[in-house]
């Protein structure tokens, strides 16, 4: 039964189910494999949602508490103390709604990123013992946070209607901006989760990174504040390189119809960055995933 390379006489007619070789099998094969594993994708998502709410006392309430408190603090900080609330660009929209519209995608981005960055290491047991397309881990960890988002989003809509703002036709673009936020989180998640396998320092760096990012993202203020400021030009350019600029501006524009919220150039640059991060992240992850089981 042992054979040299010569003994492939009795080849079955069917093509093999799996080919094991040193290199990957190409993008197309990978996507079709991901599709075959879609059931696992849902199961993993259901699993992390279950686990997330299973042993927490207030359960789903967490999804409301975090964005609500961030919104309140930022409204006080930027709206009252820093007097950003008198921004003419805001029109008659109350400042807390502007902030909330920024907190929504921000929260989605930061929890998605945190979840997906830790996803491979958190599932070390599975990674080292069974095969499945590894990309499922960071990707499903990202999408899991959609539930939290929807809960917070419902609260937002209630507040919005309560204060007499009707959503306009621009609302149809919201899923697009949501998609950009998820792509950004997933792309960065690909990078960080793969690096995390080799360098556990990521765990310490990430919270710090996210903390910094909330201030350089237009969560507590409007992007127009930055464009209209006296900051030097290169800082303004740096500002729009932030992927969250496109997302948050887009949210404000489509939810509240803030007139000058969406600067086309800033949006294009920022969205381009998202694409760059996502593609490079995916390629990097793909390069690294074959040996996860060896080093994890």
């Amino acid at each position: 039964m042992i054979s040299g390379p010569s003994s492939s006489q009795a080849k079955p007619d069917a093509p093999p189910e799996a080919v094991i070789q040193p290199q990957g099998s190409g993008l197309w094969a990978e996507f079709s494999e991901l599709w075959r594993y879609r059931e696992l994708f849902w199961t993993l998502m259901a699993r992390s949602i279950l686990v997330r709410y299973k042993q927490t006392l207030v359960g789903v309430l967490w999804a409301l508490i975090r964005p609500l408190f961030t919104m309140i603090i930022f409204t006080l900080l930027f709206g009252q103390l820093a007097k950003f609330g008198e921004d003419p660009a805001a029109g008659e929209v109350p400042y807390f709604l502007l902030v909330f519209a920024g907190v929504l995608p921000w929260q989605l981005f930061s929890t998605s990123l945190t979840g997906s960055a830790g996803s491979v290491v958190a599932n070390a047991g599975m990674v080292s013992k069974i095969y499945f397309p590894r990309t499922i881990l960071p990707a499903s960890a990202c999408l899991t946070t959609l539930l939290d988002f929807l809960i917070a989003f419902a609260l937002f809509i209630i507040l919005m209607l309560g204060f007499g703002f009707m959503p306009s036709w621009r609302l149809v673009f919201l899923p697009g901006f949501l998609g950009i936020a998820l792509l950004a989180a997933m792309g960065a998640g690909f990078w960080l989760s793969a690096l995390n396998v080799h360098y556990r320092d990521i765990r310490h760096i990430l919270p710090f990174m996210i903390q910094m990012m909330i201030y350089i993202s237009p969560v507590g203020y409007l992007s127009s504040k930055v464009y209209g400021s006296t900051l030097p030009g290169y800082l303004k350019t740096l500002f729009i390189l932030n992927p969250m600029v496109a997302v948050i501006d887009g949210f404000r524009w489509s939810l509240l119809g803030v007139p000058g919220a969406l600067d086309p150039i800033a949006f294009a640059v920022s969205a381009g960055m998202v694409l760059l991060i996502f593609i490079s992240g995916y390629l990097f992850f793909r390069k690294m995933m074959d040996t996860f089981a060896d080093v994890i």
């Binding site: 094991i20 070789q21 095969y131 074959d290």
Partner: peptide
């Protein structure tokens, strides 16, 4: 054989789920 990790060299064909 279970594809948990990739070989450095060589090749294997499998007919069936593992």
């Amino acid at each position: 054989l279970s594809r948990i990790t990739r070989p450095t060299e060589g090749r294997a064909l499998l007919w069936g789920r593992v």
